[in-house]
Design a protein around this nucleic acid. Structure first.
Lengths: 135, 135
DNA sequence: CCACCAATTTGTAATCAGTACAATTTGGGA
DNA sequence: TCCCAAATTGTACTGATTACAAATTGGTGG
């Protein structure tokens, strides 16, 4: 049985072709795509795909902890299927989001100052190595 | 001369009543307001205030490093006039944003893995002390 | 103190990511 | 294979933010 079918079953998510394709895309493209990126890419193979389905599936995967959403800007969300903790850099030159693997002392904390901590997101803004080098 | 006039002059921002009010509001209300919060509050004193002016001023203050924007969710930005580095917790119960003062080893780093770092944002999602206590 | 002009403010209209909803389709258990 | 709750689709809607053009204004030079 395909790997992604197992993942969905294990999480009690009904298996559909749309969900499999979205999960596969997120798992094989760690480019931090927007919902629109996912929609446009998968529409090539399945022209009947609805944007609502993309949003519904993202919501479902998020609720089961299979993806996280990155909220760098106020007018679009980006998504990442990875669950291992890493931080993100938004390059102000090229607009790409780059993974930053650092040892953050807070990612494993479950409480802080009396508050319960469920998620830790580290966002950096700056200029990525490639854009710096090109100057 | 009023403190806020000095701040604007020092940054080469033309002084207007609207800008003074917005700067004063941000400096005296560290409640992480949205643009709409600012607009609705200041509209009480100046009914002619335009929402566009609020956005323009926010943009201008941001460019001069007088405020930072927090992008917790994809459909609204929140603003904070503070420049001293601290992180933020979004409480999933009450929706408030709470300042988290922790010693983060990355806030002073200017480079990382070859990338230039301009801003460091730490976002936590969880449940705040008050909401936990109420259970 | 006044006149002027570039910058600012205002209000309306447009944009665009995301959501609501109702009709159609479908996965998968009985 | 049948059936129905759940999923998908497409369209309409929402709400934060931006674009734009006309009216207003801060503040510098005279």
């Amino acid at each position: 049985m395909e790997e992604y079918v197992k993942i969905l079953r294990k999480n009690g998510i009904k298996v559909t072709p749309q969900r499999l394709e979205i999960l596969r895309f997120l798992d094989t493209h760690h480019t931090h795509p927007t919902a629109d990126d996912i929609y446009n890419e998968l529409k090539k193979k399945n022209p009947a795909l609805s944007k609502t389905t993309v949003y519904n599936t993202i919501q479902s995967l998020k609720e089961h902890g299979l993806l996280i959403s990155l909220a760098f800007s106020a007018h679009e969300s980006r998504f990442d299927s990875v669950i291992n903790n890493h931080h993100h850099l938004l390059c102000s030159e090229c607009g790409n989001v780059i993974d930053i693997d650092i040892e953050c002392p807070f990612t494993k904390r479950k409480a802080m100052g009396g508050h319960r901590i469920d998620e830790v997101h580290g966002y950096f803004r700056g200029v990525c190595k490639d854009c710096l080098g090109g100057k």
